[in-house]
């Protein structure tokens, strides 16, 4: 596992304490897990995602990500409806490790309340949390 200083956290993203990131795109939210989360898990072997069309509340579990010897639940940083999932992860779960903020994204949400987006952590705040 790497030291936090070696990990990447893009400036433009919002974060939550459960290690998901959010990228706002025309009112919609693209969501994945952070470099820290993928590093802690190790080689990702399987990602379970919800069916598009499903509505979920903020903080609800929306899926799980598995390595060989661990399972982590995924928690929704903002409430809303699932409009898209990353189908590529079914056959290439390793994208979560190699490109967590790009091709390793997980779902796109149509937010039910835009206020949720304001409650996200900045990079600085998330880094502070990691230092604990």
């Amino acid at each position: 596992m790497k030291d936090v200083s070696e990990l990447k956290f893009p400036e433009e993203l919002g974060y939550v304490e459960s290690h998901e990131w959010v990228r706002t795109e025309d009112g919609r939210a693209r969501i994945g897990i952070t470099d820290y989360a993928q590093d802690q898990l190790g080689d990702v072997v399987y990602v379970e995602l919800p069916a598009p069309g499903k509505s979920l509340a903020k903080g609800a579990p929306f899926g799980s990500v598995e390595s060989v010897k661990a399972v982590s639940e995924l928690y929704l940083p903002i409430g809303g409806t699932v409009v898209e999932i990353n189908a590529a992860l079914e056959n290439s779960p390793e994208l979560v490790n190699s490109d967590p903020y790009g091709r390793g994204w997980m779902i796109v949400i149509e937010p039910s309340q835009s206020e949720d987006l304001k409650g996200l952590l900045s990079v600085q705040a998330y880094r502070e949390k990691l230092k604990g």
């Binding site: 399987y46 598995e66 390595s67 060989v68 010897k69 661990a70 399972v71």
Partner: peptide, 12 residues
């Protein structure tokens, strides 16, 4: 596929 099993997923 051991993540299905009790020693990893415990009550789930």
């Amino acid at each position: 596929l051991s993540t299905r099993e009790q020693h990893i997923r415990r009550e789930k």
